[in-house]
Amino acid sequence: MEPYPLRLTATARPLVFGGHAIARRLGKTGVPDWCVAETWECSDVDGSSGTVTNGPLAGRTLREVVADHPEELMGPGWSGDFFPVLTKFIDAAGALPVHLHADDEDARRLEGQRNGKTEAWHILDAAPGATALCGVKEGVSKEELRAALEKQDFDRVLRRLPVRAGQTIYVPGGTPHSFGPDTLIYEIEQTSDIQQHAMRWQMEDGSHVGDEEFAANLDMFLKEVKTGTRPDFVPGLRIPVADGVDRTFLCAGPYFALERWSAGTAAPLRRSFATAQILTNIGAPVRVRAKDFREELGRAATLLLPAALGEVEIEGPADVLFGYLPDLWRDVVSPLAEAGYDAGAIASLGSVRGPAHTDGS
């Protein structure tokens, strides 16, 4: 089968912190007319795998496409049981619950899951004065952390960071976090839906969590928490590509990388790639060309570009995101080092070593 860009169904989730920003501010169509907290743009989470809506593969789930066309989708030599990257829009009209996601080791050891969930947030919009909680303050013991969580006194033990549009933060598994209210983000993460909450209310409907359940939740939270991870927001690393075309690396690590590309009208946006690309439009509608595919990509819409396509062209003006599973040396370190960025700058993107390491990892 000839590769082509895939349109996938997006799952909308009506959690209590959601609002209407994904439809009304981003302009995403097809969103239900109720408070939506998240739309899962590219998902292969168990039970929530997106379904292809266009072309010869229409009606097939992403899980089925991975099984039938692993190398065409992900690149030569790749094999796996599921698509490894999950992307979402999240509308934190209200504050998210304080929670964490296990890292790979704890997910397998404590929850019987195949992998954990490291994630990153790219801030699309935030009200003046918006903040996020992310990471445990230095010097806080697990005993002190539990005592504060029991009292719901989060600022006593967790770091509160200012949030500004355009910034990104890479959040390793095991890091306690929350953001909102009045914050709109694009999230990229490992394919997983595991989480441990530290709240007295359920995020699905706001109902009360009883004492016994709350204590059990905190027990698991404390087993999985990593008190030494204290990530910060970064502006990204920009590389001029062509006349009016900019490429900005937002975050990178072994599980995913995220880039933001912008283009005017002097030159089209052209991107070559060797692994599947999750292309999400965060600006006005654009025209996308890839081999025989010529279609418009609307506001807040997503295409999954199989690796076998090799290249995509987008007519400007354009403001788009590319999320992918990287070969860190080839896709991240080398282009940034060639552009003059040092090891420290590259390492600021998340979990990636800079050009001082020459072993190709």
Score class of each variant (00 low, 15 high):
P5S: 04
L6H: 04
A10M: 13
L15R: 00
V16T: 15
A23C: 07
A37D: 07
C42T: 15
V52R: 02
V52G: 08
V52Q: 10
L57K: 09
G59S: 01
L62A: 02
E64A: 12
V66I: 05
G75I: 05
G77F: 07
D81W: 03
T87D: 05
K88L: 08
A95Y: 06
H101D: 09
R109T: 13
G116L: 10
A120L: 10
A120N: 05
H122S: 13
H122R: 14
A126T: 03
P128G: 13
A132M: 15
C134L: 09
G135D: 11
Q152I: 00
L158E: 10
R159M: 13
P162A: 02
T168G: 13
I169C: 15
H177D: 01
F179W: 05
F179V: 00
T183L: 12
L184H: 04
I194M: 13
Q196I: 09
Q202F: 07
E204M: 11
F221W: 00
F221M: 00
E224K: 09
V225D: 02
K226G: 07
T227Y: 11
R230H: 06
D232L: 14
F233E: 14
I239A: 06
P240R: 09
V241D: 11
F256P: 08
E259I: 05
S262W: 00
T265A: 06
T280W: 01
I282S: 07
A284G: 08
K291F: 11
F293G: 05
R294A: 14
R299W: 02
L305Q: 01
W329I: 03
S334G: 06
L336N: 13
E338V: 10
